[in-house]
Design a protein around this nucleic acid. Structure first.
Length: 419
RNA sequence: GUGGGAGUAGCUCAGUUGGUUAGAGCGUCUGGUUGUGGCCCAGAAGGCCGUGGGUUCAAGCCCCAUCUCUCACCCCA
């Protein structure tokens, strides 16, 4: 039997309705904040991601779905969206069309990781990017958008964590200090952290190893090495969040994995999912556009994982929405009338009512059970004495009342259903 | 890439120290008289017990391999 690829999922109809509603909500909120949708290709040149995200990250070095196409070019299924949006921004000279580009997206992403709770190989993210301004108001806006969407969904077990990485220069100074501090402890670090010492030393703060944690407890903090401009930037972000009623905590150990981040970084984590608790993450990337060959332009953005979000919803018992019930289910009493019944049903549908009927020539009992399964508000009986008298019988399924309508009076029948 | 757990009906799971025709609940389908659902009742369909080897007179159960799912590490949304 052929099965779906490991780490990919079919979204069956019970769930796809929920996905659609979530997407509607995202579209709505993004439009309130005046972000415009951008759709980029599923695959890009591999070089875009190795330059944008950073060669040292695991995402680029071993988790990308890369392949050589027939013309010999290395292509990659997008593992994240920021690099793609940045590429499109440069390619279409969006900076010349307007001073600030506020963009959002909903899109599948691909990473060849080992699947676990809330993590898949094809997964979906929505997110936003604002390119063209250094304003800390935008950093805060990103956090607020994500927070607003999560709140509208009904999630409560959330924590907003923010931190500042400052500018590159002060961060490099700090990295040296950290190296200096860690060197005497090097042999006591976990194997993973020994590797991180060279590749991405800041991420040792994220280690779940107890020994690492105790070593890092006394490590110097980046916050203490930030220059005044970075501190001021961060201060404004915090101030805006407070005034916007977004509860947050500063986590000086929150460092993000992607190379392009600077200044503000943030995550919103949920206590309702497993170990993959970050529902969204993001930050500022003032150097990225230039690094990808564009004219320097500052940017900030975030991405949220849809599968994780829905997992959190399931565990918190929120956003449990069901598809609208059927308005009418047609019950065919005389099989000779099936064309007539189909016509009537079509008329209902074309008038905007959700209607369906039995296509398997089943018994009346079976048809009624089917109507009930779809939670149909009404059933319409076609046939029998009523039809001989030129009438249809309409039954209200919750009350049990029945009403007669002239077959010529579809308007009256429709009006009754709409009441 | 590393480690733990699990694969029996559409779903959730039972299957005793290996021993005849493999079970339940839910779901599905059909009925419970002439044209009416939900509740209830009855019946039916549906399984090469993940796959391939092995041990044995005998394997769903024991052994090996393999695949898949799952959780955690790594990494990250």
């Amino acid at each position: 039997m052929i099965k779906a690829i490991t780490g990919t999922n079919d979204i069956l109809s019970e769930d796809s309705y929920k996905w659609r509603e979530l997407e509607k909500l995202v579209n709505k909120v993004m439009s309130l904040y005046n972000y415009k949708e951008i759709r980029t290709p599923i695959f890009e040149e591999t070089a875009l991601f190795s330059r944008g995200i950073g060669d040292a990250t695991d995402i680029v070095s071993k988790e990308m779905y890369s392949f050589i196409d027939r013309s010999g070019v290395s292509l990659t299924l997008k593992p994240e969206m920021t690099a793609s949006v940045a590429r499109a921004f440069i390619e279409h000279s969006l900076d010349k069309k307007q001073s600030l580009s506020k963009l959002y997206y909903i899109s599948p992403m691909f990473r060849q990781e080992r699947p676990q709770a809330g993590r898949f190989r094809q997964f979906h993210q929505f997110g936003a990017e604002a390119i063209g301004s250094q304003s800390p108001l935008l950093d805060a806006e990103m956090i607020i958008i994500a927070y607003d969407i999560f709140a509208k969904i009904g999630l409560t077990n959330l924590k907003v964590k923010i931190n500042s990485l400052g500018v590159t220069e002060s961060r490099e100074v700090y990295k040296d200090k950290l190296k200096e501090y860690l060197l005497p402890h090097f042999n006591n670090l976990s194997e993973d952290s020994k590797k991180r010492f060279d590749t991405n030393i800041l991420r040792i703060f994220d280690s779940k190893d107890d020994k690492d944690q105790s070593i890092m407890r006394d490590a110097p903090l980046l916050m203490d090495y930030l220059d005044n401009i970075s501190l001021e930037h961060f201060h404004i972000v915090k101030e805006v969040l407070e005034k916007s009623n977004v509860p947050y905590e500063v986590d000086p150990k929150l460092v993000r994995g992607l190379d392009y981040y600077c200044h503000t970084t943030f995550e919103i984590v949920s206590g309702s999912v497993g170990s993959q608790s970050a529902l969204c993450g993001g930050g500022r990337y003032d150097g990225l556009i230039e690094q990808l060959g564009g004219k320097p332009a500052p940017g900030v953005g975030f991405a949220a994982g849809i599968e994780r979000l829905l997992l959190a919803c399931k565990n918190e018992n929120v956003f449990d929405i069901k598809e609208d019930p059927l308005d009418v289910y047609i019950i065919l009493l005389d099989s000779e009338l099936k064309n007539k019944a189909f016509e009537a049903m079509l008329e209902l549908r074309r008038d905007g009512l959700k209607a369906d009927a039995d296509y398997l020539s089943r018994s009346i009992k079976a048809q009624m059970r089917e109507a009930n399964k779809y939670n149909s508000r009404f059933t319409l009986f076609v046939g029998g004495d009523e039809y001989k008298n030129g009438e249809y019988l309409l039954k209200d399924m919750s009350e049990g009342n029945q009403f007669l309508f002239k077959t010529s009076d579809m308007k009256g029948l429709i009006k009754k259903i709409r009441e």
